[in-house]
Amino acid sequence: MPRLRELTRKVAAKNAGPFQVTVDVFCGSPQAFARVAPALDTARVARLFGVAPQLMRRFDIPDLQVVKFSFPRPVVQGSRFDRDMHGAQFATLLEEIEI
């Protein structure tokens, strides 16, 4: 099975303030969006990020060919046990999954 990064234009992650992270899957075309959006299982993404499924918010935006996930940071930005100040590595974790 292909990995998400091979099916999309870009996956980007960034803090949305110190307490949340948001991950945008830019599919790049209506065809890629139609392939990727139904195959991305929200509960699986929540598990991948170590987040309770009920805290995972998801936005499917066909106009932009984007699937967006927003969730509370597992560790608050910049606190003692945070490993990634800007939260960008969540994108690499997601783009490597096979779908």
């Binding site: 918010r57 936005f59 932009l64």
Partner: peptide, 16 residues
Amino acid sequence: PHSVSAHMLYENADPF
């Protein structure tokens, strides 16, 4: 239109 509308995604938990 794409570059402008996509900016609501950036660092925003809710794009709307």
